[in-house]
Amino acid sequence: MNIFRLTADLMHLASIFILLLKIQKTRSCAGISFKSQLLYALVFITRYIDLFFYWVSLYNTLMKIFFIGSSLYIVYLMQVKFRATNDPVLDTFRIEYLLAPCALLALVANYAFTAQEILWAFSVYLEAGAILPQLFMLQRRGEAETITTHYLFALGAYRGLYLLNWIYRYWAEGYVDWIAWIAGLVQTGLYTDFFYIYYTKVLKGQKFELPA
């Protein structure tokens, strides 16, 4: 464990708490893509299935339980409790165009042709693109509540910090993980526009609005 990875994981945790806070405080999931949240639940389930037969540490196990549990809870909040505030009209990204290529890629680019490794690779590829429905929805709305932008910032910063962690681990331990690295680079890259607007608007006290 190094400072980049710990900070990254804490940012990831923070992003989920911010999202829960947004939904509970405003009693609404307006502006949040249900499709992205559904994909994250799928990412966590397929990656952390090893929870039952692969022990890393107590930290690792507790985080896995938290991520699976909270993602399912968010899906429940959006689909059941606050369903009326969910806006499927703006949530139009075709997730099959994401799921199918990720499944294919996982079958050909993995560390071992076993169910567990294929699911792991699938989860890493899917995580890289899981934010796309959310960014697509943001684009269609043209604006976002400030708390939603804090959620997206924390979520984007998490994978960005993992990039620093990987550089550090390569240097310190000779650690190499090409699948996670390339997917992580793509994932962080998707946030570039968002980060720019977050930095130039939200951090200066303005509303998050996309240029016309």
């Binding site: 990831h12 090893d50 890393v56 560390y111 792991w120 993992y162 993980d177």
Partner: peptide, 10 residues
């Protein structure tokens, strides 16, 4: 095994 040991991250 070695392959699995690579997945110590979240």
């Amino acid at each position: 095994d070695d392959t699995r040991a690579a997945h110590d991250e979240l």
